[in-house]
Amino acid sequence: MDTSTQKKWNFSAVFYDLLAWGAEQRWGPRKREFFSSMHGKVLFVAVGTGQDIPFFPPGRDIIGIDISPRMLAKARERAARYPGLLELRVMDIHALEFPDHSFDQVVTSCTLCSVPDPVAALIALRRVLKPGGELYMFEHTGSRVFPFNRMLDVMTPIWKPIGPEMNRDTVANVEKAGFKMQQVSNVYLDVVKTIIASAPEG
């Protein structure tokens, strides 16, 4: 377990809901639509304080993981109201405790901006996906558009101690990890995106 990352997110858990309220309200309808594709056995990575749980479609079979026990303590209240199977577990994305090919689908939401080694994390996710299984990501990334690309570069070292990195090329990282890209859509500028990819067959 990466204890420095765990400490960072345990600290952020104190004020996370306050800072993320606006974003969750703004992205909520888009997330609800995106998550409606959840099917089969689903791994939801970095469930945090559970702000995404109200947007999950009902009746699904989901395991939610997060590195921070304090985040998950808050998420449990929301998970209790979910009308389906939702199990929450403390787990490091870099050391997933699931056998190979355990899930039909992996879903992330503002996750790959926050993990220490995004490509290694994506390779770990590929391992637990069934061949041909889907990776659904709602992520914020770096930008290719000036001046937003430079601003995100400047803001990254300021936010990193308590939050995410803002200038990662997550689309490229997904491809580096061996996924087959299916669809990339912009939600806001070219910074907030939905990414759909699949694990290689066989």
Binding site: L18, L19, A20, W21, G22, A23, Q25, R26, W27, H140, P147, F148, M151, L152, M155, Y188, L189, V191, V192
Partner: peptide
Amino acid sequence: VGLFGAMEVMLPVML
């Protein structure tokens, strides 16, 4: 950011 959104607020406000 807390009231109105994340990137939709951060980027224009910073600029």
